[in-house]
């Protein structure tokens, strides 16, 4: 492998890895406040892309993305209020099945609204063949957009969780729900908020990735399982580790093309998931003792 090729693969890996990291953070936000793995997380990414593509006919790109993110956030809130909020002590099995059902509903609604065609947003800057050179490597400007968006989201979330009152309340809810309730935190609203937040960042990821990966009604499922792989790899609930794990998985996936055919790429990722689940279910960066105390 030449050095140029190596860097091309590396950048492809980082691009996809950023996307996986964002999906994983979406998983983590909901998991932290509710203990639910939201199997519909990938569908939020798909919805963000699809809605922004449709809105593009009526408004400029920036506004379309902003409105798409808002709409997806409202959908996320509506889902939580309709299907999760009023359940009394639901079992994990029940919640898993409900969120799977929600993901089917979202995907099939998308199929009936947008059809089977593959769509995409235009490149934010330039077009498909615009590249700029970094040393000997050619990079599409969209890659920079993706990495930038991922970084901004990370910093934004960090500030939100550490410095704003609502962010602190959400963290309190994550640490101990009963204690948070006793301190006057409206934990139910925090759960709704966590669904909105993870729908929002999922949608934004769907928008920035759309020019590169394209958007189709069923693109959510494979994203969800990769995002979950990353979330587990970093240790469930740990968003900072998820970024590192996301980049790691993206790079492994990009380089796997050199060893196994492209058609088996998903199988590679999922095999990694299974191995992690079998060997280190608490993640690379997590501690096994903390994991034992958690209720899966």
């Amino acid at each position: 492998m030449t050095l140029e090729l190596f860097f091309q693969y590396l950048f492809a890996g980082i691009t996809y890895g950023s996307l996986y990291a964002i999906v994983a953070i979406g998983f983590n936000i909901i998991y932290n406040t509710t203990g639910i793995i939201n199997f519909a997380q990938g569908e939020f990414v798909m919805l963000g892309g699809m809605i922004s593509i449709s809105l593009l006919q009526f408004m400029p790109l920036g506004a379309a993305i902003a409105v798409a993110v808002l709409i997806t956030m409202l959908i996320g809130a509506a889902i939580e209020m309709l299907f999760i909020r009023w359940l009394v002590h639901p079992s994990v099995l029940r919640l898993v099945i409900i969120t799977i059902g929600i993901s089917i509903l979202l995907r099939e609604s998308a199929l009936h609204i947008w059809g089977e065609s593959i769509r995409s947003l235009p490149y934010f800057y330039g077009n498909e063949i615009t590249t700029f050179s970094l040393g000997s490597v050619n990079i599409s400007p969209q890659v920079i957009w993706v990495i930038l968006a991922c970084a901004v989201m990370m910093v934004g979330l960090n500030i939100f969780f550490r410095s704003t009152p609502i962010g602190r309340e959400m963290r309190a809810c994550a640490a101990n729900r009963t204690a948070a309730l006793l301190c006057g935190v409206n934990t139910r609203n925090m759960v709704t908020l966590s669904f909105m937040l993870s729908a929002g960042i999922g949608a934004l990821a769907g928008c920035v990735m759309s020019p590169i990966t394209y958007t189709q009604y069923d693109s959510g499922a494979s994203l969800a399982i990769k995002g979950f792989t990353v979330a587990i790899l970093g240790g469930l609930g740990n968003s900072m580790a998820a970024v590192a794990a996301g980049l790691l998985l993206g790079i492994i996936e990009a380089f796997s093309v050199t060893v196994v055919p492209l058609a088996f790429q998903d199988a590679v990722t999922i095999t990694i998931l299974l191995i992690i689940l079998f060997v280190r279910p608490h993640g690379i960066f997590g501690s096994s003792e903390a994991a034992r105390l958690k209720d899966f």
């Binding site: 793995i37 199997f39 994990v92 099995l93 898993v96 494979s222 399982i225 979950f228 587990i232 998903d266 199988a267 999922i270 095999t271 998931l273 299974l274 689940l277 079998f278 279910p281 209720d295 899966f296």
Partner: peptide, 17 residues
Amino acid sequence: KLRGHYLAMATLGFGII
């Protein structure tokens, strides 16, 4: 050996493979 979400994801993963 896995439970709950992990079991669901592992079997789902097997199906996709």
